[in-house]
Design a protein around this nucleic acid. Sequence first.
DNA 1: TTAATAATAAAGCGCTTGCTTAACTATCGC
DNA 2: GCGATAGTTAAGCAAGCGCTTTATTATTAA
Lengths: 114, 114
Amino acid sequence: MLNQQAQLDKAFQALADPTRRAMVERMARGPVSVSELARPLDMSLPAVMQHLAVLEASGLVQSRKAGRVRTCEINPEALSAAEQWINQRRIEWGHRLDRLGRYLETLKTEGEEK
Amino acid sequence: MLNQQAQLDKAFQALADPTRRAMVERMARGPVSVSELARPLDMSLPAVMQHLAVLEASGLVQSRKAGRVRTCEINPEALSAAEQWINQRRIEWGHRLDRLGRYLETLKTEGEEK
DNA sequence: TTAATAATAAAGCGCTTGCTTAACTATCGC
DNA sequence: GCGATAGTTAAGCAAGCGCTTTATTATTAA
């Protein structure tokens, strides 16, 4: 089990590549084989496999093999973890604005009192 | 103006590094100078500047200089764009499950009709 | 005006990434 | 069994990344 930090490293790193995002977009529509994943992509099969390996190592994606076909699908929970990190930052930023607002209110009220 | 794809590349790439995420976490609590950003980080100032440059190039962060101090802050809209890409994938995945559910319902109903 | 502070620029270096090609293995359908 | 299909392994290579050190440029304050 990787720690939270390393997990996020890998998730964001995985999402930073447009080919890998295209693969995730395809998987979001439903489970898919490796060669189906590769079909629209302008690169060799081994290259696609390497991208898939990155996605699996990040936990964003899972796959299992039946016969000679490997079927790949999204892991929504891992996606959620990355999403939540970003969301937290925006929430904190919002709180900061709240605090600033209250502070300005305080100044105004104090001014009225004097 | 970069296209959406390149924008996401840079945003996720920027978030893939733990030092840069730490910097964003700090900025989420409020605007901050470069040397303040650097203080808790175990690396040279130029290294911090390079991380900051990556964050600015991604649009996740903005900064401006007053006198000799550069003040850095978060750009919540750019964060939001990255967040929404992830969210879209999870929503699509959810819709897929809906469709599957309806399909199974249809099978069941058809079975009852016969 | 000079010393300290805050930031910046430039060059270099080792490690990682994103491919490629070539060779190989396992399974399927006839 | 045999050819076609689906995936896998390994090696190699150019470009990019994450630092470092060294040197420099504002700006501020004593």
